[in-house]
Structure formats: structure tokens, C-alpha cells
Simulated assay, not measured.
Amino acid sequence: MAELNTGDGGGKGKGGKVRSKKSNAKVDLTAMVDLAFLLITFFMLTTSLSKPQSMDLGLPDKDEKKDENKDIKVDQRRTVTIILGKDNKIKWFHGLIEAPEAGGAPADAVYGKNGIRKEILKRVVSIPQVTGDKKKGMIVIIKPTKLSTYRNLVDILDEMAICDVPTYAIVNDFSPEEKKLAEEMNK
């Protein structure tokens, strides 16, 4: 049993007077200890632990019929291509790089709200989305180079989630113009 002993109020050492002996005051702490353990147990069982967060990512099927893949024609006004380079560099262009008159002139950007996010948000708002069977809207093509880091890819995927981009793809095919742009960027 847990108890708290207090000092003896006896009369020893105080002159010659004899006083009546007082009994020690004892406080039983068993109930308080029981309550403390009950509260600790209650809060441990009712608290939810932090769960790891992950992003849903749609991957292609492992289909062995590679010859059946067909090229899909997409309106170039709906596409934005982002090339990731070394040292956190980003080059992006709207439409096709081969057709700069359609908005395809490459531009530099940085990660964050005043960089690539601002450009993506402008285009997400300007390209209408149709709900229903066919969802139209902006398509972002992400092309990481061999010198870009995994963190750069995660950061750009976070930007896609923040901007609520309906369709995006990670691609490792580079056109000759895009290869030249990536080589200039990674110098």
C-alpha cells in the first residue's frame, strides 16, 4: 500500500514539558495511483497513432502485349511538359516544343508556390474540365532526366496533387528537341 508519512508531533526535545503523543497522520495514495494508471490506459487506448500518408499513383498494367499500344492524339493546347534536371532545375513548356507559336517556348521555373505551381494553376483554371464519361482538362507530362533526383520527382508529384491536375504522366521518352533542351539544362 502506498502511503505518505508525516512528521511525528511528539514532544521530545522541547524543554521539560511532557505532551501527549499524537499518532502519525497517514494518507493512503493507493486510490490515486489506481486512478493515474486507469487514465494512462484510457488515453493510450483511445488515441489514434499517426498514420503514414501516401499518394495514390496509377501504374500501367504489366501487359506482355507491347505491340498493341497505340499512340493517343491529344490536343496540344491541353498539354504541359515539365523536364526535371539536375540541381533542382525545371524547364517547362505548353504544347509542343516543336511548335513555339502554340505556346511551346521553354521557360525556367522553380519549385513552390511562386514557381511551377503558379504556372500550373493558371493553366488548370484556363482549360475547362468536363465531368462525366470523358474527363477533359490539362494533361501534364513529367520527364525526369537521369541527373534529376528522386526528391525532385516527389516534389513535382506533390505539385500535381496541390494543383488538382486531372491527368499527369511520368515519361522517359525524349524527342530530339527535348534531349537538346535537357542537355543544355544539365550542363
Rank of each mutant, 00 (worst) to 15 (best):
A2W: 08
A2T: 00
E3M: 05
E3T: 01
T6G: 01
G9P: 04
G9R: 11
G11V: 01
K12R: 10
K14H: 15
G15D: 06
K17T: 07
K17C: 03
V18Q: 13
V18P: 00
K21E: 10
K22M: 07
T30R: 09
T30G: 13
M32D: 15
D34C: 06
D34V: 02
L35N: 11
A36Y: 12
F37M: 12
I40S: 08
T46R: 09
T47F: 03
S50W: 02
K51Y: 06
P52G: 01
P52A: 03
Q53R: 14
Q53P: 04
Q53H: 10
S54W: 01
M55N: 14
D56E: 11
L57F: 13
D61H: 01
D61C: 01
D63E: 13
E64R: 04
K65G: 04
D67K: 13
D71R: 12
V74Q: 15
R78A: 11
V80P: 01
G85I: 01
G85C: 11
G85A: 04
G85R: 08
K86T: 04
K86P: 03
N88K: 13
K89M: 07
K91S: 09
K91A: 11
W92N: 05
F93Q: 07
H94A: 12
G95R: 11
L96Y: 08
A102D: 15
G103D: 14
G103W: 08
G104L: 06
P106E: 03
P106H: 06
A107D: 09
A109L: 07
A109Y: 13
K113N: 07
N114W: 10
G115P: 13
R117T: 02
E119M: 11
L121F: 15
L121Y: 12
K122N: 14
V124F: 09
V124C: 13
S126D: 15
I127L: 15
I127R: 08
P128L: 03
V130R: 14
G132M: 01
K143A: 02
K143L: 00
P144M: 07
L147H: 07
S148T: 01
S148K: 02
T149V: 02
Y150A: 02
N152Y: 04
V154K: 15
V154W: 12
V154G: 06
D155G: 00
D155R: 15
E159R: 03
M160R: 09
A161N: 07
P166V: 05
Y168P: 02
V171M: 10
F174W: 00
P176N: 14
P176Q: 08
E177M: 09
K180S: 13
L181H: 09
L181G: 02
A182S: 10
A182I: 00
E183F: 03
E183T: 05
E183Y: 05
K187H: 14
